[in-house]
C-alpha cells in the first residue's frame, strides 16, 4: 500500500496553517493525527497529508473541576496523565485501557477516535455518557456536546475543521465502563458506560449509554430516569436490566445478532451500574 497518490506531506505549525492547507487541497487533503485509522485503508482520494501532531494540542489538564484534553493527545498520554487519573475516580484510565493494545494507544489520539467515530468504538460511548464537549475551529469556532455532534453531520463539519479539544465536566459520583468482544482485546460486540450519583442512599443522577448496538453509543434517557430517586440494590439492578433488554435499540450485523446484543446490553448495564454504585458510595 505504498505511496499511492500521496505526493505531499505537510507538518502544520498551528491550526491556521492546517486549515489553509486543508482548504487549498479542497477535499484531497487529510488531517493526520495518529494515523491508525487513516493509514489503515487505501487512501484513494488523498493527495496531501497534513500532520497535526506538532501544533501543541497534546495536553491533558484539569479545568473547571473536570479535565480538558487536547485533540492530538494520544490515548497513552491520557492514560498516564495525573489529571486523567484524578478525574471521576479514574474512569478515563478505565476507558483508555479498554481501547486496543498499548502500541496502538501510543499512536491513536483522542481527536482521531472522536472523528473516526466507528460505531463499535469505545470512546464515543464513554464520551457521550460523560457529557463531553468538543471545541473545533473551521471557518468559524464551534463548540457542542459530543452527543449533539454525533446526531448531526459531524463528518461534514470535520472535513473543513480541526478539532481542538474535548472537555469533560466534573461529576459528583462514579462511572464504570464495560465491553465484550470475542477476546478481551477485540473491538466491542456491545459496550456500555454508566454513571451514578448517590446521596443519603438515593440515586440523584444517572447516565447510561450503550454502544456497538451495532450503531454508535447513545444515551438511554428512559433508563436514566428510571434510576433517579431509587435506592441502589439488587432489586433495582434486575428491574433496570430487564428494562434495558426491552427498550435498547439493537440490530444484527456479521459480528453478532440482535437477540444476543439485547441480552448482553442488559448484562453490561447491570455490571456497570453495580460498579458505579460501589464507587459512588465509597
Amino acid at each position: 500500500m505504498d505511496g499511492g497518490r500521496i505526493h505531499r506531506f505537510h507538518v502544520a505549525r498551528d491550526v491556521e496553517e492546517a486549515l489553509s492547507l486543508l482548504s487549498a487541497y479542497g477535499g484531497k487533503g487529510a488531517l493526520l493525527a495518529g494515523g491508525v485509522d487513516l493509514l489503515r485503508g487505501p487512501l484513494a482520494r488523498v493527495e496531501g497529508l497534513i500532520d497535526i501532531t506538532r501544533m501543541g494540542l497534546s495536553s491533558v489538564a484539569e479545568a473547571r473541576g473536570g479535565v480538558t484534553v487536547g485533540a492530538t493527545s494520544t490515548l497513552t498520554q491520557i492514560l498516564e496523565s495525573p489529571a486523567a487519573r484524578r478525574y471521576v475516580r479514574g474512569i478515563l484510565v478505565e476507558v483508555m485501557r479498554a481501547v486496543a493494545v498499548p502500541p496502538l494507544r501510543n499512536m491513536a489520539t483522542l481527536g482521531g477516535a472522536l472523528v473516526s467515530a466507528h460505531p463499535w468504538a469505545d470512546l464515543p460511548t464513554a464520551l457521550v455518557a460523560l457529557g463531553a464537549e468538543a471545541r473545533w475551529r473551521g471557518e468559524k469556532e464551534g463548540k457542542a456536546p459530543v452527543e449533539d455532534l454525533y446526531r448531526g453531520e459531524f463528518r461534514k463539519t470535520f472535513r473543513t475543521a480541526v478539532l481542538i479539544e474535548v472537555s469533560l465536566p466534573p461529576w459528583d459520583g462514579a462511572f464504570a465502563y464495560e465491553k465484550v468482544g470475542r477476546t478481551r482485546y477485540d473491538i466491542a460486540l456491545v459496550n456500555a458506560c454508566c454513571g451514578l450519583g448517590i446521596e443519603d442512599g438515593t440515586i440523584r443522577w444517572a447516565r447510561v449509554a450503550v454502544g456497538a448496538r451495532p450503531d454508535r453509543g447513545e444515551r438511554l434517557p428512559e433508563i436514566e430516569a428510571a434510576l433517579v430517586g431509587r435506592e441502589p440494590g439488587e432489586k433495582l439492578w434486575t428491574e433496570i436490566q430487564e428494562l434495558v433488554e426491552a427498550r435498547v435499540e439493537v440490530g444484527d450485523d456479521r459480528r453478532a445478532g440482535r437477540a444476543w446484543r439485547r441480552k448482553t446490553a442488559g448484562v453490561l448495564v447491570r455490571r456497570a451500574l453495580i460498579r458505579a454504585a460501589r464507587g459512588a458510595a465509597a
Partner: peptide, 24 residues
C-alpha cells in the same frame, strides 16, 4: 495494525510501523 510483527520504538514507545508514513 493487527499482528504486531512490525513493532518498533519511537522515542522509546512501541508503535506499529505499518500504520505510519516515513515523514512522521
Amino acid at each position: 495494525g493487527d499482528c504486531g510483527a512490525c513493532t518498533i520504538l519511537i522515542d522509546g514507545r512501541a508503535v506499529r510501523s505499518c500504520l505510519m508514513v516515513a515523514p512522521q
